[in-house]
Nucleic acid binder design. Sequence first.
DNA 1: TGAGCCATGAAACATATGTTGCACGAATAT
DNA 2: ATATTCGTGCAACATATGTTTCATGGCTCA
Lengths: 291, 291
Amino acid sequence: MAQAQPKASPLNELCSALPSLPMRLQEVGRFVAANDYDATTRSMRELAAVAGADPASFTRLAKAIGYSGWDELRAALTEARRPAQAAPFSGRARGRRAGPNADVTLVNEKLEAEAAGLGRISSTAIADAARALHGADRVWIAGFRSCRSVAELLTYQLRLFRPGAVQLVGGSGPDDIDHGAFRAGDAVVVIGFAPYSTASVLSARAAHRAGATLIAIADTIAAPMAEGADHLLLYEAAASPGFFPSLTGAIAIAQSLAAVAFTLGGAGAKRRLEETEDRLAETSQYFSERG
Amino acid sequence: MAQAQPKASPLNELCSALPSLPMRLQEVGRFVAANDYDATTRSMRELAAVAGADPASFTRLAKAIGYSGWDELRAALTEARRPAQAAPFSGRARGRRAGPNADVTLVNEKLEAEAAGLGRISSTAIADAARALHGADRVWIAGFRSCRSVAELLTYQLRLFRPGAVQLVGGSGPDDIDHGAFRAGDAVVVIGFAPYSTASVLSARAAHRAGATLIAIADTIAAPMAEGADHLLLYEAAASPGFFPSLTGAIAIAQSLAAVAFTLGGAGAKRRLEETEDRLAETSQYFSERG
DNA sequence: TGAGCCATGAAACATATGTTGCACGAATAT
DNA sequence: ATATTCGTGCAACATATGTTTCATGGCTCA
């Protein structure tokens, strides 16, 4: 048992220890994890009353996960919650040398670059495209290979409030691609970056040929699916280090697109969203503690 | 003339009342204002020791500002510091003012918040998880509903250099879920945020039960799939405005995970990636101008 | 079935907590 | 100059806090 986590957050060690604990302590532990702010401020007895448990359980919980008592656990939690001081943080220096922490450095740079990339997305272009999306009779979404995840996310979110009008191109496999279904009045969203998959380019061309509104999400103006696009949403795929282009920007665009389209949908969209959520909840797609 | 500030924060009323207080109470009051976090957590006597004052001063300070005692002041400070609750989906869709550029503003806010959220991802946790991924015999990836897109992206990227070892849970539909397939030595990645889909929670539990390494990507430490997780990667889903939780952070984590796992794979991973790309190119999955 | 173990709740314990009364000293008013 | 008020520290108070102990009930294992 090589538990070599030198400095884990108290909540982490709590959660990882949960499953091996007695039932009651699990409940209490979950309560603490879910209400960690109150755990640090209110008293043990108050917590017990709200959680519907015995005060002693908290002491036992603390001891069960290695602390000397509730006081010590609480102290650890408060320290973990302490707001980030405007600290000098000498450690954040950009040491680039490859050492045992080369991985961490890689991740840091990646995240930094992606955060910067998000800033270069054109919000007006997104708003325009969303209006086009809102006005379309039907919406088709095409993305293949690594872009498939973006396409599916956009499809999923749009379907929440436009159930019948949104279609994922090739949703049931490669044979499901029917570019002939595009019509004038439709909107087609094509997502892609270099190297561009053949299917995405064909989708874009078919959309253009059919007279549908073409919305391209791509990494370059020179992208093949950008030719003849009515709306072109650009993001930086190559900016971040790593072996593979980044999709963070594309995801951000997709989400913004869905969000704006939703607000344009107004009360009707809101109602349909609620209906969908209710249906999901009723069919117990969602998990609840009381199982 | 009544009070000009109808609903001032406790700290504000404290500061505005400071000048008219006795010297010693001013010192104590300033100390409380400067260390309000400790004021809510540490005890009165501890504060007195650090501030170099008498414990009674705190009680007197509270009464001087209009509270019944230190307990009441502390309670007010505690409530003021309470973190903003994450509202359910449809609940947060309301309340957005309609204007000519409301859409653009919405997008801007969203992108800004997401860029900020990326900064709070723990890169060391990702590096650790990637090592676990690298060491695993097989890798299972579970994500459902809106998280499905993240799961698919991670599956796709990992498969590029570990073709046989990576499996998407439920890849061929809901009937394809076989939690019994998890074994010790496997790694299981579960992605989810509130409201948590039942399938994801079941996957996490099955992984834990099977003795597999559980890597959870979630929005909260209190997430059900985080229980018993060997690696917990957190991102901010609720931070950004919009009708739906943001997946940008989860995508960023997935990509970083894949990137680090790839570097750990070394020359072998690089070779397999090249093989995969060559194969895709040969079968004309990729578009070329001369195509 | 019986013995032992463990989880759990209630009550008793020692202690730390917030509060209040008191004494002393300085500043102010008469 | 004396009397009074007010600010301040100290110490005692009543109480709430975290902890521990004990009795009970359910469970497992022999």
